[in-house]
Amino acid sequence: MNYIDYLLKLDANAEAKPNLAPYIAVATDVESLIAMIDAHFMNGAMPEVLKQGIRDTLATSTDPTRRARLALYLALTSAHYQIQN
């Protein structure tokens, strides 16, 4: 979990840096962001509880990069993703 958090912070010294641009591009629209993550990682099967958690969390930030990071963090650290997908 903490490694995912670390990766998503895009630290300059990180061993791997994911390209979050596609997610950041749609991050102002929470439903579009959820749909993209759902399609990329969960084959469209993201449970509603996770979607709602992302909506609640993203309501606290307007910064697209931060929104993308938060949404990806919640999705990728969920057991739904790690076990089911």
């Binding site: 509880v49 996770l50 709602q52 958690g53 992302i54 609640d56 969390t57 309501a59 606290t60 938060l70 963090y73 919640l74 650290t77 969920s78 739904h80």
Partner: peptide, 9 residues
């Protein structure tokens, strides 16, 4: 908010 959502999940 993130941690609350995490806990809910």
């Amino acid at each position: 908010a993130r941690d609350n959502a995490f806990q809910q999940v």
